[in-house]
Every structure is written in structure tokens, then in C-alpha cells.
Design a protein around this nucleic acid. Structure first.
Ligand code: ATP
Length: 749
DNA sequence: CCCTGGTAGTTTTTT
DNA sequence: ACTACCAGGG
């Protein structure tokens, strides 16, 4: 096998096949490439057959690409390889083995986050607990976190520190019982149950230990405890494990990722060989230096070298704008100009901290008729109309799936309301029956009036009829049967709104997706379809070559690379994201996220921030992010586009003038400024008088004030308007407090 | 008993 | 923007 595409250190990592190996290295240093070649080499050296290698990646897309690369290197088919995410690997194992746990069958349903929430609400109802006391979302995150740490309800209870924790433990226990009755596993269960399976059944563990002769993990810095256990168990016999990662790219601690997995790898495997890669092959010198400078502000970090042979490249562009619309128009304007200079759209990406920020970009990109795609956020399979159909599918596949039952019992509306559903729920609870069965029984008694009973009978009739068809129809045909029986499209057509029209379009897309699935798969059953969609996201279908601008969150950008990157909304409060004060660890994680984002760029990087933006409709005024100040001046060019348009500067695109491209049509008049004065617009659609007004205003970020009790401090955030105007002040003694501006006597200093 | 439309409070990041 | 809750009409 040729290893010419590797440097010396990489080659070392690819050739040392036996025993534990840790590759730690900065961004873009070729870690993923090492993993790929190592897999190829294992097969080439006949150390293992493809099906004896387990490689875990962070996304399905990364897995797919890795398989393709291996196939290319070896010119051998790679479909036998176990290259997938932790979750997919676990599903594969559980489908074969779960029966021995005695509590689930292999046809289990996988609950996503929404289903999980709905199951938690159902649990709360059964327990008769108030959703205002136990917040379903909070409960969801506690339970998920517990599972990610490998805690069963019992162990969770033992660790409880308060009566609130004890309640959570009780909820967790009941929630788990409800999932079990529904033969459903949530995302976290996929891992937790696999590990439990291994622990309780050594014979099964041994089977997989013997099967997987070599294991590899990408992005090891973002694995959580249960994933760690899973791997540790699997390689316990032979220690043939290779992990690659970068502490500076650990950005999922909120999901239970534990950086100590990578930090203590050498303790776990004392014989471990450690290889460091230091050469970056991705980005220009300016980008690498700037990103390294930012992340070096993290205190809890070992210094690390990263260098490149590449040229300095363009300066980073730090752009200051008036508001989020100006920001979007600026970004899109730059893309248009580049387009004219002959650069194609697939070279660009826009990264933001929160999904909500994509909306404005979407609006402006449409105005400019520039092709784009938003990855993540609202997944195709998460749209309500699609989820409705999927809920029918799931109920057909698993009649005990109560969450799906609840979703569709009255969709399309068939006159079965809350009161009736409550009765079914109660009956189900008292008689320990799934909802569907409870509904069947309850209409035989006299709990319900005749009209309501008839409606339920009709619904049950539809389900039963479809269940019979399920065996003979492929998923696409079944889809048509569902639409036909439920009159779902008819129901949408009746609404006749823009919204419902787009829903109908989505249904057509689903139809063709199903058609595609049926054509592609040899075994196109309802179950295989449901499994496929439950673990994929639209991120996984990304194709670099497709000619459109790609928009995504900074988190979703991990592991990717693009020639031109716009990182937007780089503002205090938004990025680093905070509501109130961030603790030290969270701040460092935000900074790592910034490092991840910056190091995705190969050629040019723009980072922009706006003076103000609307959050939930009310204006917020943010200071530039501290991360911008952490980039040494020598690498940046600052561009201030707040006031007027006339600033002509050279663009990175040969010769063009910089600044916002004129709007294709005048922007509609928007809300009021803080003083309630309508903003003026000049004929070209630029707002130019904003700046003075803000600085005249007693409350804007950066202004120093004295508070009668707390002393002096600086405004770091302003939100709301008029009598609801709130200011967040960071006092000189370090305290951060929020005040209603009208209720407090401040003195300007 | 159900449905609709209005209002109020609020969400970071995702396999 | 998205959900949760309430009032009032059918
Ligand atoms: N030895 C090499 N010679 C030339 N190019 C390389 C070499 N190794 C890696 N590259 C290229 O460098 C880029 C980054 O590689 P890769 O994605 O493997 O890095 P990584 O360390 O996984 O990055 P990150 O941690 O930032 O996701 C890719 O475009 C890859 O093709």
C-alpha cells in the first residue's frame, strides 16, 4: 500500500498497528486521514477482515466518507466495515442481542428528543406531578445526562443530593418503565443498554471482543462516559485501540462529553504509544496563527504547536455592522462579488452560534437568488407533517408506541379532544395497557358517549386496516395508503394557507424519498425505513460539491472544511453564548468552539458582529465578542460598516469595492429604536442616523454608570424597550446584575 | 366536548 | 419563533 500521502508522523501512526495508540493533534493536521489509512493498512496487512474492524466517527457523514476513502485506497469493497457513529453501532448490536435483556424485543422503536419529551410529559401526568414544578425540559436533560454517565435510576437515586434530585430519580425510573412498556429506546438508551448488555452477559461481550480485532475512535475528545465504557469493554482483551482527538476541539460537554477520556488515555492503557501531529495542511498561516492565539487564552490547557507551510494568505476580516440585516446583506454581498469573480458557491459557508440566526440569512439569500442550504436545525424528518406520517408508520410497526398514538389520535382532527384522551390515558394506566389497546377496550364500556366512541372506533379501524396492508405493501405504497385512509392531504388542502402548501410540498418530497428508498434497498421494509431515518440527519446528506452556500451552526461544522468561511454574530452574549454569567469552564468551551469554527477555513475567514439584533422580537445591543480582541492585530483587517456606505476598500476578491451591495429592493421599515423614534432610511435603503442615536442614549453597552448600592460598573447588555428596557451591568467588583432601567437611578460617569 | 384564536413567556449547541 | 394556556363559540 502506498503511504506517500502521509507525513512521517502520520505514517508512524498508520504503521504501528498493535496495541493502544493515541494521536493528539491540532486542527487540520490530518487525524482523520490517519484513521482512514490505518483502517486500510489493517486490511492490507491482513491483520483483520473488514468486518473485524470497528471504527467510530462523530457523524454518519464522516463514517460514509471514511468508508469511501478506504474503498478507494484499497480498491476493495468496504461495506463490511463497521464504520459508524456510536449510536448506529449500538443499534446494530442491539437488534441482534437485545432479547436477552428480557425487557425489549428486537423490533424496538427509537425515540428522538421530541418523543423523549413527550414521554416525560406522559410520565409526569401519570405521577400527577406539576409541569411547573418539574420542568419537562429540565427533567429531560437530567435523565439524559444520567444515562450518559452510565447511571441507572437506582444509582442516580443514591447520588441524589436534594429532594429535587430524589424526585428526578423517581421520574427517571417511571420514565424508563414507560419506555420499556412501549418497547422504545431513547437515544441515550442505545448506548446505555448496550453497555448493560455487555456487563450482564459476558458471553455476548466476548463474542464482540473476539469479532472486533481492532477498534478506532475519531474525535475522542468529545466522547462521554458511556461511550468510553463501551469501548473499554470491547478492547479489554487485546487493547488494540486507536483514538484520535484534540482537547482544543472539545465542544460537547453539555451533552456529557468528558475531556478526561482523552487526557487519561495513557493511564487507561499504560502501554499506549502517543503520537503528536503538528503540521496543519488546511489553512493559511494567518488563519492558523489567529485561531491558535484565541485558544491559547484558555487557562486549562497544555500549550500545543501547530504550524503550516502555507502562505500567509488574506488577513482575517473583522466586520462591524449595524444590525443582523446589515450583517446578512454584507455577507451575501461578498458572496455575490466572489461569484462574479468566478468562485463557485460550494466554496462558501456561514457559521453561527444558534440556529435561529439562519433565518435572516435565508431571507437575504433568497432576495439575491443565491442557492443555499441550511444544515441542521429543522431536520426534514422533524417537520410536523413528516413526523405525523412517521407516527402512523411507527404505530403500525409497534402498536405499543404510545407517544406516536398521542401524536396522531387527533391528526388530522377527528374530534377527539383532550378530555377523551385523558380518559384513555387513565384507563390505560389503571389497566396497564398500551393506549391503542386501552382505546379498543374503553369504547366497549360506557365511559364515553356514543359519538366519541364512534370516532375512536373509526380511528382504530383505520389503524387495523393499515396494519393488514403493512405486510404486503412496501413503505412507499404504505405511505399512500396512510394518506388515503386518513385523508391527510385533504386536511392540509382544506387549510389552504402558505404554511399548509409548503407542508404538502414536503409530503411530496417524502414520497420521492420513499420511492428512492424502495428502489435502493433490497430489504425495503417499514422497519428498515424507520431505523434509517431515526439516526440520520440532513447533515449526513451533505455533498461538498453541490453548488450552494452551506449554512450551519458552529457545532455542526466540526470536522468539516471550506475555502471561505463567514462566522457571524460574534458578539458578547451570543458568542460566547450566555444568559447571565458564564462560569470558567463554559467560557473555555465557547472559546474552543471559536477555535473549531476558525480552523474550518482554508483560504479566508470573515468574522462579523452587529451592534444590535432582534431576539424574540425585542432589540438587544451587544458588544463585540471578547474572542475578537484575542486575535492579534497583525492578522486582521477591521472593517467598520456601521455608518455609511461610502467606505470603499479593497476586497479580498480581486479589485472589487467592499461594502454592502445595494439591496435588490428597499428593505421594509422595521420597528422602533430604543427611544421609539422611527429609523430613517436613505434612498438606497441604508440606515445612517442610528449610530449617533445609540450613543446619545443613556443605556448602551460600554457606558459606565454608578448604581446607588452596588457602585460603579459598565453596561454589558441592553434588552427590551421602553418601560421594559433592561440593562445588564458588570460591576467593578466583578458582580453582574440585571436591572429594569426605569426602576433604577443610575448616574453616568 | 371540541375547536380556534389570542396572549404571554422563552430555547444554545445535537447523536 | 414556538409552545402553553385560556376564553368563548359551535
Ligand atoms: N500528509 C498530508 N499531506 C497533504 N494533505 C494532508 C495530509 N494530511 C491531511 N491532509 C489534508 O489536510 C486536511 C485536514 O485533514 P483531516 O481532516 O484529516 O484533519 P483533522 O486533524 O481530522 O482535522 P480536524 O481536527 O480539524 O477536523 C484535509 O484536507 C486533508 O486532506
Amino acid at each position: 500500500m502506498k503511504l506517500t500521502e502521509l507525513n512521517e508522523r502520520q505514517r508512524e501512526a498508520v504503521e504501528n498497528l498493535e496495541g493502544p495508540l493515541l494521536v493528539v493533534a491540532g486542527a487540520g493536521s490530518g487525524k482523520t486521514r490517519v484513521l482512514t489509512y490505518r483502517i486500510a493498512n489493517l486490511i492490507d496487512q491482513k491483520k483483520a477482515r473488514p468486518n473485524e474492524i470497528l471504527a467510530v466517527t462523530f457523524t454518519n457523514k464522516a463514517a460514509r466518507e471514511m468508508k469511501e476513502r478506504v474503498q478507494k485506497i484499497l480498491s476493495l469493497p468496504s461495506d463490511q466495515l463497521w464504520v459508524s457513529t456510536f449510536h448506529s453501532s449500538c443499534v446494530k448490536i442491539l437488534r441482534r442481542e437485545i432479547e436477552v435483556l428480557g425487557t425489549y424485543t428486537p423490533a424496538f422503536t427509537i425515540y428522538d428528543e421530541q418523543d423523549q419529551l413527550s414521554a416525560i410529559k406522559k410520565t409526569l401526568k401519570e405521577l400527577n406531578w406539576d409541569e411547573k414544578v418539574i420542568h419537562p425540559r429540565a427533567a429531560q436533560s437530567r435523565i439524559s445526562h444520567a444515562k450518559n454517565c452510565g447511571l441507572t435510576p437506582e444509582k442516580f437515586l443514591k447520588k441524589a443530593l436534594s429532594s429535587y434530585d430524589e424526585k428526578m430519580a423517581e421520574l427517571y425510573k417511571r420514565y424508563q418503565a414507560i419506555l420499556q412498556k412501549a418497547n422504545a429506546l431513547d437515544f441515550d438508551d442505545l448506548l446505555l443498554l448496550t453497555v448493560q448488555l455487555f456487563q450482564k452477559h459476558p458471553n455476548i461481550l466476548e463474542k464482540y471482543q473476539n469479532l472486533f480485532k481492532y477498534c478506532l475512535v475519531d474525535e475522542y475528545q468529545d466522547t462521554n462516559h458511556i461511550q468510553y465504557l463501551f469501548m473499554k469493554l470491547l478492547v479489554d482483551k487485546h487493547h488494540n485501540i486507536c483514538v484520535v482527538g484534540d482537547e482544543d476541539q472539545s465542544i460537547y460537554s453539555w451533552r456529557g462529553a468528558d475531556i478526561s477520556n482523552i487526557l487519561s488515555f495513557e493511564k487507561d492503557f499504560p502501554k499506549a504509544k502517543v503520537i503528536k501531529l503538528e503540521q496543519n495542511y488546511r489553512s493559511t498561516k494567518n488563519i492558523i496563527e489567529a485561531a491558535s492565539a484565541v485558544v491559547s487564552h484558555n487557562k486549562s490547557r497544555k500549550p500545543k504547536k501547530l504550524w503550516t507551510q502555507r502562505e500567509e494568505g488574506a488577513s482575517l476580516h473583522l466586520v462591524q455592522l449595524e444590525d443582523e440585516y446589515h450583517e446578512a446583506r454584507f455577507v451575501v454581498g461578498e458572496i455575490s462579488k466572489a461569484l462574479e469573480a468566478g468562485i463557485s458557491l460550494n466554496q462558501f459557508s456561514i457559521f453561527y452560534r444558534t440556529n435561529a440566526q439562519s433565518r435572516v440569512f435565508e431571507e437575504i439569500l433568497r432576495q439575491y437568488t443565491i442557492a443555499y442550504k441550511i444544515y441542521g436545525g429543522m431536520n426534514f424528518y422533524n417537520r410536523s407533517e413528516i413526523k405525523d406520517i412517521m407516527a402512523y408508520f411507527r404505530l403500525l410497526s409497534n402498536p405499543k408506541d404510545d407517544v406516536s398514538f398521542l401524536r396522531i389520535i387527533n391528526v388530522p382532527t377527528r374530534g377527539i379532544g383532550k378530555t377523551t384522551v385523558d380518559k384513555i390515558e387513565l384507563y390505560s394506566h389503571e389497566n396497564n395497557l398500551p393506549f391503542l389497546e386501552a382505546a379498543q377496550k374503553i369504547i366497549q364500556g360506557d365511559t364515553l358517549n356514543a359519538g366519541t366512541a364512534k370516532k375512536i372506533l373509526d380511528f382504530i379501524g383505520i389503524i387495523q386496516e393499515l396494519r393488514q396492508k403493512k405486510e404486503e405493501l412496501n413503505p412507499q405504497a404504505l405511505y399512500h395508503a396512510v394518506l388515503d385512509k386518513t385523508q391527510y392531504s385533504h386536511f392540509l388542502k382544506g387549510e389552504d394557507t402558505i404554511e399548509s402548501l409548503s407542508r404538502l410540498e414536503n409530503l411530496e418530497e417524502l414520497d420521492s424519498a420513499l420511492g428512492e428508498f424502495v428502489k435502493q434497498k433490497r430489504e425495503a421494509t417499514l422497519e428498515t425505513y424507520l431505523e434509517e431515518i431515526s439516526l440520520i440527519s440532513d447533515l449526513d446528506s451533505m455533498d461538498e460539491n453541490e453548488d450552494h452556500v452551506k449554512l450551519m451552526t458552529l457545532h455542526a461544522a466540526k470536522g468539516l472544511e471550506f475555502p471561505y468561511v463567514f462566522m457571524v454574530g460574534v458578539e458578547e452574549g451570543l458568542f460566547p453564548h450566555s444568559r447571565g454569567e458564564l462560569d470558567f469552564e463554559d467560557m473555555e468551551e465557547e472559546r474552543r468552539l471559536c477555535y473549531v469554527g476558525m480552523t474550518r477555513a482554508k483560504e479566508a475567514l470573515y468574522m462579523s458582529h452587529a451592534n444590535s439584533r432582534r431576539i424574540h422580537g425585542s432589540p438587544q445591543y451587544n458588544l463585540p465578542s471578547r474572542f475578537l480582541d484575542e486575535i492579534p492585530e497583525e492578522f486582521v483587517k477591521r472593517i467598520d460598516l456601521r455608518r455609511r456606505v461610502g467606505n470603499r476598500r479593497l476586497s479580498v476578491w480581486a479589485g472589487g469595492a467592499e461594502g454592502e451591495a445595494p439591496s435588490p429592493r428597499p428593505e421594509r421599515m422595521r420597528g422602533r429604536t430604543m427611544e421609539g423614534v422611527l429609523r430613517r432610511q436613505d434612498p438606497e435603503g441604508y440606515e445612517w442616523d442610528f449610530d449617533q442615536r445609540v450613543s446619545d442614549n443613556p443605556f448602551s453597552p460600554g457606558i459606565r454608570l454608578r448604581h446607588p448600592h452596588f457602585g460603579s460598573g459598565v453596561i454589558c447588555r441592553v434588552e427590551g424597550q421602553e418601560e421594559n428596557l433592561k440593562v445588564t451591568i458588570k460591576f467593578d467588583n466583578g458582580a453582574i446584575k440585571k436591572f429594569l432601567a426605569t426602576q433604577t437611578q443610575f448616574e453616568r460617569i
